[in-house]
Design a protein around this nucleic acid. Structure first.
Lengths: 149, 149
DNA sequence: TTTTTATTGTTGTATATACAAATGTTGTTT
DNA sequence: AAACAACATTTGTATATACAACAATAAAAA
């Protein structure tokens, strides 16, 4: 369905329509992901941080590293990490070389949880873009890049 | 900058990359809009609701109408509207034909505020999509539509 | 060495949002 | 008419997030 129909808007400038379309579509995709993640007890930002930690391949990450790599830069990563620790999915150790820093690592339990989530999440993403060819998707990603600049 | 560089990720499946790219770009655009709106004392959802009310052209809207048309469907539109009323930008009247409903209208003050915001917001949106031609933008919007289905 | 500045995280506060339950109203069934 | 179901919105509660202020540590300057 066209975005104008969805938000029941009269015709609007193409630029405004495009921006609304991106934000609306992102909401749809986020909700789909959140729904899938809910059964695993994770929110989307929590899931993303867990994936970042896994990407460290054993090396711990400090808070600023995590923030750099987050899709949704949020002001308060401390409390998000707290939640992961409460659930036993991550651990926090104060860095000995620089005691201002903390080192955060994913636990075995965290890795195990992620391994369960990978397949359903990839399936979800595949479905989302199934109507576009690889070539179209590459073009589409390039366009997004241009919009961000 | 490519999305993989931004979130400092190793290469990932194209579908996942695309979904992350959309969500990340939507965040960038939302933040830009929020920054502009902040000086007018509005959040992005509040601004969108005000625009919906203006689109009614004098006719009041009830809560469910507003929710239908919102870009970010939120569970609690009541309190969002409360904020607009606190600021004197909207008024709420209980509908006489059906006393379960409430009729919400934009005030003159609200209309006046919106008229100040229109130009800077359109300029922002224009800038965002400036690197794409009209033809490309139409293609892009079609692709977003396919992704939502 | 002491003071100042910068870095890295954490905490407090206000607001926003999701979700479920509750309220008040209207329509329908018995 | 009384009981029940449906509707439209509001409220309660928990969690999330933005923003600013705070603390602790380290590095740099005086």
């Amino acid at each position: 369905m066209k975005i104008e129909e969805i938000i029941k808007s009269a015709s609007m400038p193409l630029a405004r329509k495009t921006v609304i379309n991106i934000i609306y579509t992102a909401n749809v995709l986020s909700e789909q992901s959140s729904d899938t993640l809910k059964q695993f007890g994770l929110t989307l930002p929590q899931f993303n941080v867990l994936r970042i930690l896994r990407g460290q391949k054993g090396k711990p990450a400090n808070l600023s590293t995590i923030q750099d790599r987050m899709v949704n830069k949020m002001s308060n990563t401390t409390r998000l990490v707290d939640k992961l620790i409460d659930k036993g999915l991550a651990v926090r150790v104060i860095c000995q070389e620089n005691r201002r820093k903390v080192e955060i690592s994913i636990t075995d339990k965290g890795l195990q949880l992620l391994s369960q989530i990978d397949a359903p999440m990839d399936r979800l993403n595949d479905q989302a873009v199934a109507q576009l060819s690889e070539e179209e998707l590459n073009l589409f990603n390039d366009m997004l890049e241009k919009i961000r600049e």
